[in-house]
Amino acid sequence: MKKVLPVLVVDIVLVIVFCAIGRRSHDEANAVAGLVSTAWPFLGGLAIGWAANEGLYRNKSLPASVIPAGVIIWICTVAGGMILRVIGGQGTAFSFIIVATCVLALFLLGWRAIYALVRKRSTAH
């Protein structure tokens, strides 16, 4: 659990940052309540992704790995987030789906790729 918790925290923070950036770019009011409203579907999708990775790989896939964990978590975060937005009566415009998919890929896969490179270089020396 010690190794998993920091990875989960990074994912949660990055999903919240994604939502905060989106709200900020649209100058939306009610900062805290609005952020919660925007973030909960994607945090739900993130939880689904973590559960899916665990269910499929049962501790064989490191949560900090790009493949398969990062990809599973990213896809579930986007798909689950969009489904939960629809259930919650929020919009899912096509342009929003594209932006969310790209930004969450950058965030959720990007940090994992950087971590892998740093880890690979540190073990090579």
Rank of each mutant, 00 (worst) to 15 (best):
Y57M: 04
E28S: 14
V15W: 06
N30H: 11
H125K: 11
V36M: 10
V78S: 08
S65D: 15
H26K: 06
I48S: 02
L43T: 08
D11R: 04
I83P: 09
R58E: 05
S37G: 15
V99I: 14
I87P: 06
T77D: 04
L8P: 00
G55K: 03
W111I: 08
G110N: 07
A31I: 11
G45W: 02
L43H: 13
A31Q: 13
A52V: 15
L117A: 12
V103Y: 01
I67K: 12
Y57E: 01
T101N: 07
W74A: 08
N59I: 01
A113I: 10
L56V: 03
V15L: 00
L109C: 13
G70E: 10
A124R: 12
I73P: 03
V86C: 04
T38K: 00
F18E: 06
G22K: 07
S65L: 00
R119L: 08
T101P: 07
R119S: 15
C102V: 15
V86M: 09
P41W: 05
G88Q: 10
L8G: 14
G81I: 06
S37W: 00
T92Y: 05
A113S: 14
R112P: 05
L84V: 12
I72N: 11
A113G: 12
G88N: 15
C19Y: 00
F96L: 06
P6N: 06
T101E: 01
I98H: 04
